[in-house]
């Protein structure tokens, strides 16, 4: 009678384990599929990035070719006009003296009850720094290698920022700007200026004057769907 008890118990145990494993396997298959899907997607995305960069190189080369092919008949004035328009449009890679501004989240350790939101770098802070740099006469600006255009937005999403519609950047944010290094540096570092305000919250701001920085061309297509040339 006693051994019969034990047998029932063992059978029950085995049955339970089998049930659980069965359940687990079904779940595991789904989970595995999603891992695979993400891996596929990320290979696809990195391949597409390579393709995009190749296309961008092709566009740059074509622009240079076109410049050469059409340079004969044009006056110097027109050529200069095109050159300036390209700089402003963000479609040419530029270099020159300037500054490198590095922004990073706060290194202050919070006391309990304090609002952590105050010590985190926000899109507004980045906007303010960029605005200050523009006001100081920056001629071309990029963040982590992303060129800033007239249409570039800066958005916070979680710990990262997104700009140029879907270029995701992670801290530290390195802003590269071409312009007068002294003017740029002093406009950021002036008393009561943007660097001081941010440093109050422990956000790490460093401004480095550089004799030579490079700001890349905008990588991606530009197309206006709604705005048409007037007149």
């Amino acid at each position: 009678m006693k051994s019969f008890h034990w047998m029932v118990a063992v059978i029950g145990l085995v049955l339970g384990i089998m049930l659980a494993f069965q359940f687990r396997f079904t779940r595991e298959i789904q989970r595995f599929e999603s891992v695979q899907r993400v891996q596929e997607l990320s290979t696809e995305v990195s391949q597409m990035k390579k393709d995009r960069d190749a296309l961008q190189t092709q566009v740059n080369a074509l622009r240079a070719d076109l410049d050469k092919a059409t340079s004969g008949p044009q006056t110097q004035d027109l050529k200069e006009e095109l050159e300036k328009a390209k700089v402003e449009a963000g479609v040419s890679e530029l270099s020159g003296p300037g500054v490198e501004v590095t922004l990073n989240d706060s290194n202050i350790s919070l006391r309990p009850g304090e609002n952590p939101n105050l010590y985190v770098l926000h899109d507004e802070d980045v906007l303010r720094v960029l605005n200050e740099i523009r006001a100081a006469g920056a001629e071309a600006i990029s963040i982590n290698g992303q060129r800033l255009l007239a249409t570039t937005e800066v958005r916070c999403t979680g710990p990262t920022i997104v700009l140029n519609k879907n270029k995701r950047l992670a801290p530290p944010y390195v802003i590269t700007a071409i312009g007068n290094p002294d003017t740029l540096e002093s406009s950021l570092k002036m008393k009561g200026g943007v660097a001081e305000t941010l440093q109050f919250w422990g956000i790490q701001v460093s401004v480095k004057k550089m004799s030579q920085v490079t700001v890349p061309a905008y990588s991606g297509g530009i197309k206006f769907e709604y705005a048409k040339a007037a007149g």
Binding site: L66, K86, G90, V91, A150, F224, A229, A230
Partner: peptide, 27 residues
Amino acid sequence: YSEATDAFNSELLKIKLYAGLTAVEGP
């Protein structure tokens, strides 16, 4: 010669549009 001038001018117009050096209209 004249085609090259046309090509240059139309490229200039496009880049100026991107740069914000052209008046634009739309919704």
